[in-house]
Computed example of a mutant assay.
Amino acid sequence: MALCNRGVVSRKLLPRETNKKPKTTAVYTVGPRIGIPSACGLDKWRVAVNATKTAALLTGQQRTMPPKLRLRGQDVEWQTKVRYLGVQIVRCMRMAVQVEQIIHQSRAARSMLRPVLRSHLPFRAKIALYKGYIRSWLTYAAPAWYALYSTSQRKRIQGQQSIALRMIVGAGRYVLNDVIARDLCVETVEEFIQRIARRMFDIDD
């Protein structure tokens, strides 16, 4: 990631000689000062950018849209939301669209695994399936965006884990979700995200 006048521009460093086509690039700008790297700067850092696949997202509460950005002689269109690396990012940065997407995907995965999760397999095997196929949807790119989730959105995500764990053990109505998670030794979604985020930052340091 590169910072440019309070704007964030995603980039992919390429070797000196390559025939690969550049992937989609998203440009995020914040506030009235808008910046975009010049062609000379991109060439200097050997960054390949496809201007036709580049989108600009202006965050904040500005009512009037600024002039279009230009990259390599082409206009970069302003968007109200962009999809970057599978994450839905909207102008208000509330992440509601992303939460709906990951909940929908986790429900679909749980529905396909329902016969297995309700089978007589050992709990350890079913927990491994849950972590690999359902929790991975709930926590996709979470270290980067979980801080932007509201309290209600975090509860909805945690609720998807509770539903899956209840399905695994076949728990009755009056068994608490916390008791099920404790007996299965499964941490909460927030604890898991904090752990992987801490590990990621430790590796980066």
Rank of each mutant, 00 (worst) to 15 (best):
Q88Y: 09
F123Y: 12
W78H: 08
R118V: 00
V87P: 03
R118M: 02
K68M: 05
M95R: 05
G132T: 07
R118C: 13
V116S: 08
I134S: 04
L113Y: 06
Q101L: 10
R124M: 04
Y140V: 02
L113V: 09
A96H: 13
R114C: 10
A144P: 00
R114D: 06
R135G: 00
A147I: 11
T80K: 02
R124I: 10
R135N: 11
Q98D: 09
F123D: 07
Q88C: 04
E77K: 15
R72Q: 14
I89R: 06
R124N: 08
V82Q: 09
L121N: 13
Y130Q: 02
V90F: 00
A108E: 12
R118N: 10
R70Y: 08
Q88W: 06
W145F: 14
A128E: 12
A109N: 07
R91T: 08
P67T: 07
L69S: 11
A109H: 03
H120S: 11
Q74E: 14
S111L: 05
H104E: 14
Q98C: 02
M112S: 14
R135F: 00
A147C: 03
Q79H: 14
M112A: 15
C92W: 01
L129N: 04
G132E: 00
Y133D: 04
K81T: 11
P66W: 13
M93C: 12
A144Q: 02
L121A: 15
I134H: 05
T139G: 04
P66D: 09
A147L: 08
H104G: 10
R135D: 11
W137A: 00
L138E: 09
Y84V: 00
A142Q: 07
W78M: 09
Q101V: 01
I89E: 10
I102E: 01
K126G: 04
W145C: 04
V97F: 04
V99R: 06
M93N: 11
S106H: 04
L71C: 06
R135P: 00
Q88E: 12
C92M: 10
L117F: 12
Q101E: 13
H120C: 13
W137F: 02
V76I: 15
R91C: 00
T139K: 00
L69H: 08
L121S: 10
L85W: 08
Y133V: 02
G132W: 00
V82Y: 03
Y140A: 13
S106E: 05
R91I: 01
A125C: 15
R91H: 04
R72H: 10
G73I: 12
A108G: 02
V87A: 02
Y146Q: 11
M65A: 11
S111K: 12
R94A: 08
Y130P: 03
G73E: 07
K131S: 13
P143N: 06
L113D: 12
Y130N: 06
A96S: 15
G86L: 05
S136K: 08
S136C: 06
R70A: 05
M112R: 15
A144V: 15
Q98I: 01
D75R: 15
K68V: 02
K68G: 01
R135A: 07
A141E: 04
R83A: 04
P66I: 09
R135Y: 01
G132R: 09
S106R: 06
C92E: 14
L121Q: 15
L129Y: 06
I102F: 07
R83G: 06
L138N: 08
P115D: 14
K68A: 11
A144C: 12
P66T: 10
Y133C: 14
I103E: 09
M93A: 12
I102G: 03
Q79T: 12
I127P: 03
Q105H: 09
G73M: 08
